[in-house]
Nucleic acid binder design. Structure first.
Length: 264
DNA sequence: AAGCCCGCCAACCGCATTCGC
DNA sequence: GGCGAATGCGGTTGGCGGGCT
């Protein structure tokens, strides 16, 4: 299985790893710890490039790796997360202990994609891309829901209306990307005054908050409000133990109708 | 039994980002 | 700040192996 073993290019070995190579790498990492893969490749004499060594460790040799037998729960989580974040395999893998981005990506491409396509065909559901009936948002500078003292804010925003730093942290966009339309969910850690989420007026204004990968980037694709509401994001967050204790709020106030002043 | 087809998945590749000097 | 190296990530490749004819 895999690439042709033993094939060499510029003195570097490629293809499948032998048991001996695995053992050499495991021994080295046990002694020196993971990381510095270029150095690892040189010092072990494996004749592999650093990238190959890193990949072998992360995807196969790392302790705690689970191989095969993806459970229904894991599959469900993969589907839900893919709905939310798209092909962000490492992000998805980060939520499923013992699974690697490579395995999830392979599983998606080989199994889930077809499975879901089959289900969709079965239901005779039109693809959102092909559905001309969707009204996409083109302008919105309102916060649609919010809760002080922690919780969720759901928003739809024209990225151009959001300050640059906010774009980077919340929307995953870039400072030059002024055309991307985004729908999103922001999660705030509540508590003291400095941690409160404080949506005000026509812009999003936050005091110090803890930002991390919990912020979902939905800017990768166009969604309209109805599609967004079908992503069952609340269930998703409720199921992630990391935020289990968060007060969920605010999203019940999300508008289902587009405001009149949106020139959609 | 032999040949073909196709799904699976380990590994490679190219690009983007981060790190260290 | 600039630059090269290292690392991270997602897309793609291609060989193995099982099922089918």
């Amino acid at each position: 299985m895999g690439r042709n073993s033993g094939f060499e290019k510029e003195g570097l070995k490629r293809g499948m790893w032998s048991a001996r190579e695995d053992q050499v790498l495991k021994d080295y990492v046990k002694k020196h710890g993971p990381g510095k893969w270029g150095k690892t490749a040189r010092e072990t004499g494996l004749k592999r490039c650093g990238k190959s060594v890193r990949l072998r460790w992360l995807n196969y040799l790392r302790p705690g790796i689970k191989k095969g037998n993806i459970t229904e729960e894991e599959e469900d989580l993969i589907i839900r997360m893919h709905k939310l974040v798209g092909n962000r395999w490492s992000l998805i893998a980060g939520r499923i202990p013992g699974r690697t981005d490579n395995e999830i990506k392979n599983y998606w491409n080989s199994t889930l994609r077809k499975k879901l396509a089959g289900e969709k065909e079965k239901e005779n559901m039109p693809s959102p891309v092909e559905d001309d009936g969707h009204q996409y948002l083109t302008k919105c500078d309102e916060v649609h829901g919010g809760v002080g003292g922690g919780g969720l804010i759901c928003f739809a925003s024209n990225i151009v209306n959001v300050e640059e730093d906010h774009q980077h942290r919340c929307l995953g966009g870039t400072s030059t990307d002024t055309t991307t339309l985004s729908l999103g969910v922001e999660l705030g850690i509540g508590g003291g005054a400095n941690n409160d989420i404080q949506p005000t007026g026509n812009d999003l204004n936050y005091n110090a908050m803890t930002w991390n990968d919990s912020i979902m980037d939905l800017s990768g694709g166009q969604l309209d409000i109805s599609e967004f509401l079908q992503t069952d994001f609340l269930n998703f967050w409720e199921e992630t133990d990391r935020f289990m204790n968060f007060e969920m709020g605010g999203c019940s106030t999300i508008n289902h109708e587009l405001p009149n002043n949106w020139d959609g």
